[in-house]
Computed example of a mutant assay.
Amino acid sequence: MKRLEGQIVIITGGARGIGEGICEVFCKEGATVALWDVMDGQPTADKIKANGGRIFFQKVDVTNQESVDEAVAEIMEKYGKIDVLINNAGVIRDKSFLKMTRQEWDTVMAVNVDSLFVTAKAVVPHMKEAKYGRIISASSINAFMGAFGQTNYSASKAAIVGFTHSLCREVGKYNITVNAVAPGFIKSEMTDSMPDEVVKAGIEMIPVKRIGTPEDMGYAYLFLASKESGFISGHTLHANGGSLPV
């Protein structure tokens, strides 16, 4: 039995990277996935469809309530429910603090933090009515240890932890759980562009001695999205290969 058979799942920022990995894993486990992105996610959706996945692309700006509301309305009209919301969309605008502009700060906060308010506002009423839901948001190892040039990013990912702790207290009575995943060093377009010696040095600091993959993250999200995780809420799952004691 596939763990998400018959479930309707929204995955934001699903066009590439960790988001694409989550989409692939969730489709393998039987979910019907709405891939949201401001980028063109159709090639990703087509690739997953070709492997038997049930997935469709919606171009959605997660910082815009009207854009999100319209996409949710389309899903509800077609499927009548939303079981899982994955808040994976995120951006970086790295720069040392004294050189960082207000726009670079605001952009990161809008996409990484404000989007959680926007998406949850649209989805939670439907989960409440159904008396079931899973909300999982993307934090980061840097929410807990920081990183040079990432005061905006690290602050935004720490805010997600606070959001998760608080919202879970409000919606738990409706059988809705709210959790977060904090990835560590994960293979991505950014890591692919790094010099080999930098990547090797990063891997040496990871106790399991390898870089994480989008698929690794997909399975971390899968656990928290499953019906079996119903007694876990307000939790941040650290998926970093042991890099950060928790």
Rank of each mutant, 00 (worst) to 15 (best):
Q58V: 12
K78L: 15
G146Y: 04
E170G: 07
A225P: 10
H165P: 11
F163K: 03
V25G: 03
A34T: 12
I176F: 09
N175G: 01
C27E: 08
N152C: 04
M127Q: 12
T177I: 08
G19H: 10
E24G: 05
A138G: 06
I206A: 00
N152K: 00
C168P: 11
D37P: 08
N88S: 07
G218W: 03
N88C: 13
D46K: 03
A15M: 01
A34G: 11
M39F: 07
K209S: 06
G146I: 09
G184Y: 02
K28W: 12
Q65K: 15
V113N: 04
G80D: 15
E29P: 00
E197R: 03
T12H: 11
Q103W: 10
A15R: 02
G241N: 09
V198R: 12
E189T: 07
M190V: 15
D40T: 06
I18R: 10
L167H: 05
N175W: 03
S229W: 11
I92V: 15
I18H: 11
E66F: 14
R93P: 06
K157F: 12
P245K: 10
A50F: 02
V38L: 10
Y153E: 04
A130W: 02
G53T: 01
A71I: 12
G17S: 07
N88W: 11
Y153A: 00
M194H: 09
I141K: 09
G80M: 14
E170Y: 08
G80Q: 14
A89G: 06
N64E: 15
G202F: 03
N152V: 02
V108M: 11
I55H: 01
K59I: 01
G21P: 00
A159I: 06
G184C: 06
R169L: 15
G212Q: 00
A159P: 00
K227A: 07
T191H: 13
I232W: 06
G242Y: 10
A182N: 00
K187R: 15
V199Q: 06
N179E: 02
N112R: 12
K81H: 09
H165Q: 14
V246H: 15
K49P: 09
K78T: 14
P195H: 05
T236G: 02
L85I: 04
T63L: 03
V199L: 10
V38M: 13
